[in-house]
Design a protein around this nucleic acid. Structure first.
Length: 256
DNA sequence: ATGGTCGGTAGCCGA
């Protein structure tokens, strides 16, 4: 079983690339972020023709998440309980025996800003909810654009990024608090090259120079971690014409 | 060279 996460930075613009990538990579489940589409404009039919059922939680202009799967998707949840937030950043659903949680974590803009405070609060509330999700659903997978680079080795220039947003100690500690629930960064379960990233700013030829961060993650609960057979970043689509600024990330599971 | 690009929108805001 092949799981993936991809921040597409507008599904309206990126739908042809998503369809190409689905055809090429043949994932079973995909979490999309930054769809930037209200649900009535979600391209459900085109995705169904490609073999995928979908759930979406979108809004105009900003944010928006969706999950695509070859199997039926049930029991959707679109909000962190108790967090009254109009921003569409969460979509959890059950697919087979997996509970799949797709996230677009707030960016945080700059350390010390109001958006940064919102990000840290959001992550703290996420932790409490994921603890409950894990108790209900032992086979839990949490994917998405976390907008946090877990460690310095996930950053092209750690000194330049020291205590900057996406890399600051409070953000990393908030991510660690999620992982302390028993969630594993699937990418680090396997030998990897150095300087593997999942996001490269559009500016300054950052992709060509591989000046990126690894902020798109697939976290797995212990029973799922035990079934992992691979986890990697597919840089291919980032090199396509008119790309998203993020590449898809993938985790593969042995069949049960 | 201290910025440089996108996407959505119709101003700039957000990333």
């Amino acid at each position: 079983m092949k799981l993936a996460s991809w921040n597409v930075n507008s599904l309206n613009v990126r739908l042809p690339q998503v369809l190409d990538w689905l055809e090429q990579a043949q994932p079973d489940v995909v979490g999309l972020q930054e769809t930037k589409l209200p649900d009535e404009r979600f391209p459900r039919d085109a995705l169904r023709e490609a073999g995928y059922e979908s759930l979406c939680s979108g809004q105009k202009t900003y944010n928006g998440v969706a999950v695509l799967a070859r199997q039926p998707l049930s029991a959707p949840v679109t909000d962190i309980p108790g967090l009254d937030d109009p921003q569409r950043r969460v979509l959890a659903t059950t697919i087979g025996d997996l509970r799949f949680v797709n996230l677009y974590v707030p960016n945080g803009q700059a350390v010390g800003s109001d958006k940064y405070a919102y990000k840290l609060d959001w992550l703290a509330r996420l932790r409490d909810w994921l603890a409950a999700e894990q108790a209900r659903h032992p086979r839990l997978v949490v994917v998405g654009d976390f907008n946090v680079a877990p460690e310095d080795r996930d950053v092209h220039d750690p000194e330049a990024w020291r205590e900057q947003v996406l890399c600051s100690t409070p953000e990393r500690e908030a991510l660690q608090a999620l992982m302390a629930l028993g969630l594993t960064d699937s990418f680090r379960r396997f030998p990897q090259d150095e300087a593997v990233f999942s996001w490269w700013d559009y500016r300054m030829n950052n992709f060509k120079r591989n000046r990126g961060l690894r902020i798109d993650l697939i976290l797995t609960s212990p029973t799922v971690t035990g079934a992992l057979t691979a986890s990697y970043v597919d840089r291919g689509p980032r090199a396509w014409e008119r790309p998203s600024d993020h590449a898809p990330v993938v985790a593969e599971l042995a069949d049960a």
